[in-house]
Design a protein around this nucleic acid. Sequence first.
DNA 1: CCCAAGACCTGGCGGC
DNA 2: TGCCGCCAGGTCTTGG
Length: 271
Amino acid sequence: MPELPEVETTRRGIAPHIEGQRVSRILVRQPRLRWPIPETVLERLPPAQLHRVRRRAKYLLLEFETGHLLMHLGMSGSLHIVDPQHDAGKHDHLDLVFDNGQALRLTDPRRFGAVLWLGADPLEHPLLARLGPEPFSNEFAGSYLYRLSRGRKLPVKQFIMNQHIVTGVGNIYASEALFHSGIRPTRPAGKISAVRYQHLADAIKEVLAQAIAQGGTTLRDFVGGDGKPGYFQQQLHVYGRTGLPCSRCGHPLQETRLGNRSSVYCSHCQR
DNA sequence: CCCAAGACCTGGCGGC
DNA sequence: TGCCGCCAGGTCTTGG
């Protein structure tokens, strides 16, 4: 579910319900996520006021007066505002219960997500310190991609999915941005011209912005923190469309595997 | 540093 | 129905 647009949609959905509220209690039903939820979360958090919910890359940072709670949704995680009395399901691993009677509930069937306590300077944590620029920042541009890609042989799709190069781009939006910029996902990153990287950077910004505007992409049962589904799925041109005709030229879309991820593209429009 | 492969998990689906 | 293999939105770790 969660690439940058889904994480941002989640952030916008949950923030109004919990910003300014005080956590009164934490319920950990299943601590075994990607890493065990540390005891310090239980010890340090309640009672603490949540100032705001931020996002860096695909991470959410809950900024408390006492430090920062980092959350990552992995492949299958989601966050919802619930009545804490509401029965927890099998994959509801964590509740942050707030004074206003609502709870933030983390659901994550595959448990690739993470919940960590970061303390005072979250951006210096090893998981965040070396991340690439946010895609909507000025630093992220075609010239930046061009410069960092010189001499690199790996396929451009894997290059732009590397969070140390640019953050927030996952399998769906990498596939879509490459389609919109006419670049074949298998092309070695170091063999793409500066002008084509400008098109690619623009396409990444555009596809992510459009997806956020639509509330993300709904796959399986993803809904944002406000319970509304995402509608970007209706605008996918290649992802999940192997064998269907290209929306631009009509040729059947091809599929290959890169870095063990399925990669769909049009062999006619993407070179 | 660069890159490929493996690892971590559960659930849904198609095929037999 | 049941079992089996494969697939799924991520990313850290390991090893060459």
